[in-house]
Amino acid sequence: MPSEVMTRLDPKSHAAAKGMSDLSIRNLFIVPTIVFLIVFNIFPLLYSLGYSFTDFRASTNAPANFVGLQNYRELLNDPFIWKNFSITAKYVLISVTGQVIVGFGLAMLLNRSIPAKGLITTLLLLPMMLSMAVVGLFWKLLYDPNFGIINYFLGLGKFEWLADPDMALYAIAIVDIWMWAPFVMLLSLAGLSAVPKHLYEAAEIDRAGSFYTFFRITLPLVAPILMIAIIFRTMEAFKTFDLAYVLSSQPNTELIAIRLYKMAFQEWQTGMSSAFAYIVLIMVVAITNIYVKYLNKVKAR
């Protein structure tokens, strides 16, 4: 709870008598940020909302014609867009599941005394700090069917990771798992270290099996933090652009963000892409809402 003195926005307060009032300091500190974000994030969205009802193309000088809801109707009836959505859903599922298994597994392994544990943890976290576009690109060399080290070490011969239409999405997801499993690991470690030791001791006295201990003690207590990791990664995977864009140009790996980019900046269907952006936006805001609810829940504990 904030104390009485600090929260009073009293223009006649002791401090205010000499300097600026608390109220004006508060506004001076907060308002510029809010204005900045409204001008550069919300206003542009309102601007494009207008365009989403037109057939505007930014590549021509032709004036925009109002077409009403036609863009939205066309998009929602377009089977190709639905395909993009299903590819994205598949990608999110593969990559988030992989990250949770690898990340949580690593956290379980690390949750004991290990020589040089701090250094190992930091090294394991390195991939998630790197640029997806730049490092992701380098995986093209690792995946190369002729001289990539992955095929060599796994003994897969000339396996086509990125050219095979069925494999490419998995190949991209593997890079994503490599980069972001450390994130799940980081949060899981925090969750695991917060589990009270006496619970394990009690379980041991009761001669509970390790299976029972894991499902009845570890998992339920780590679940809220793990959930944050899952929601956050779901949201990020849903937005994936960099990685898939530099690694593959196949139709089978065309995620929503890539379709949107192509529609807006290669086909120059500005009006249509604005409408599409709005559909994506609504979905992201929905996931963000769930995310923040969970954040507050964990914070409150």
Partner: peptide
């Protein structure tokens, strides 16, 4: 404030570009 960060870049980029 947080939600502005969560927007996909391409969504923001379309109007910003214009």
């Amino acid at each position: 404030i947080l939600s502005t960060r969560m927007l996909p870049p391409v969504v923001v980029a379309i109007p910003m570009f214009l």
